[in-house]
């Protein structure tokens, strides 16, 4: 079963809420690190680790470094989940 983009986005939003400790947080495809004051390089690593845990997937060093937006992150999760048959 593949995840539809909407479900996936909702699950990802829950991860963001947990990592940023902000129950009202909403995410969008266009969102980038620049949009959130707490989203620094340290937080980014915590976020990536949490996403990997949540979706049982793994990113490469290059992917972690070069993700530009939440939309790209969702694309990547989608691609990785399909590949791993999740």
């Amino acid at each position: 079963m593949t995840l539809d983009r909407n479900t996936l986005s909702n699950r990802l939003q829950e991860v963001f809420k947990r990592v940023f400790d902000d129950p009202d947080m909403t995410i969008s495809d266009e969102m980038t690190a620049a949009d959130h004051s707490e989203w620094d390089s340290l937080m980014h690593i915590g976020l990536m680790a949490s996403v990997e845990t949540e979706f049982s997937i793994s990113f490469s060093a290059g992917e972690i470094a070069h993700l530009a937006s939440v939309g790209e992150l969702i694309d990547l999760i989608e691609e990785r989940s399909k590949a791993s048959g999740a």
Binding site: S41, I45, A49, F59, S60, A61, I64, A65
Partner: peptide, 15 residues
Amino acid sequence: EERYWHHAKIPFSLD
């Protein structure tokens, strides 16, 4: 865990 070493010089697995 080489990924995070290469990404941010984190010396061993985050976990």
